[in-house]
Amino acid sequence: MRLPGWISQHLAAARALLVFTVLLGIAYPLVVAGVGQAAFYTQANGSIIERDGQKVGSSLLGQSFEDRPEYFQSRPSAAGVGYDPTSTSASNLGPESVVDTLGDPAIDPESGEGNGSKQSLLTQVCARSKAVGEREGVDGSRPFCTPGGVGAVLGLFREGGLTGRITKVVSLNEPASSYDRATKAAKKNDSAFVASYEGVPVELAVFGEDYSKAIVTPIRGNAPAKPAVPGDAVTSSGSGLDPHISPAYAQLQLARVARARGVEGARLRKLVDEHTTGRALGFMGEPAVNVLELNLVLDQRYPKKG
């Protein structure tokens, strides 16, 4: 008995579904997993690093060594609270993010909800550069950053909106720590990173004021064109989990780590060179240093004294 055409078609489709389910849903994954376990066991299992029988991390994931001066520091992370593999992400802030969101001075910024403040990408870079400079004993200044470590950005108000005489100038990222609530003007004990702009005194920003009509004007300042603090020390990677830093950032940290471990800087410099990987295939990417692997070798060769 010959089956109707529509039934034959459905049976053929069911057979095809069964065959491809077995091939692509069971056999192929098992083959790939088997090859991974047989030929690439370490990579297939997360490139886990163990020391003295304990898992200390993965060579593929960055981790924090903050407040440990005897270790090389990783680059910043925007993944969760930092280096969280379950929240891998970037800050999603672009080059036009130069103006901070001011927080309510009447609310404790450490409270559960916070005070509403939010740093721009520029201020994040400036603050990190200042902090790294202080930690490593170098000049942490950068173009378009104030000495206090925020974005050096002025808001210009002109008579004609976009043209005309400047009537008011505000340092948008420097909030007044105290001000007269009646006049909403900063008190005399506060001062901006620059006293005046084209002859107009510069005011500090006041929470609650509307600066949306201001012409945003970044000020370069007199910082060197090539900062002492390299770029990867002040910016996070796209994943927030980058385990590497640049050789320049590693070299910047040599003196601090050498002092903390009581080791000659030349020995650590050689160690950094040994753990610097070149470009992939000789032309892709940049040379890099794996921070976790370097710090583990540090503990083996030059353990911290005391």
Rank of each mutant, 00 (worst) to 15 (best):
R68M: 11
A185K: 15
R158M: 07
K305I: 05
G278M: 09
Y83K: 02
S141L: 01
Q73Y: 01
M284T: 00
D273S: 14
P175C: 10
A38S: 00
P287C: 11
A192L: 01
L298G: 06
R51K: 15
E66R: 02
P243E: 10
L204T: 02
P287Q: 11
G53S: 08
D299F: 14
V56P: 00
R128E: 10
G137R: 10
G262W: 06
L154S: 00
R259E: 15
Y179Q: 11
A12Y: 03
P247S: 07
A205S: 09
A288N: 14
R15S: 07
G149F: 12
I107H: 09
T276E: 05
G231F: 15
P4H: 14
A78V: 04
Q37P: 02
V170Q: 01
R279A: 13
V257L: 02
A186R: 05
A79Y: 05
A233N: 01
T183Q: 11
N115W: 06
P230V: 12
V22Y: 09
V81K: 13
F207Y: 15
L254D: 00
L268V: 03
V297H: 08
N222D: 15
N222S: 15
P76S: 01
A214D: 07
R15V: 11
F207K: 04
G82L: 07
T86H: 07
D299E: 15
A152V: 05
C145D: 07
D84L: 05
R135E: 15
Q63L: 10
A195S: 13
L60G: 02
G240W: 10
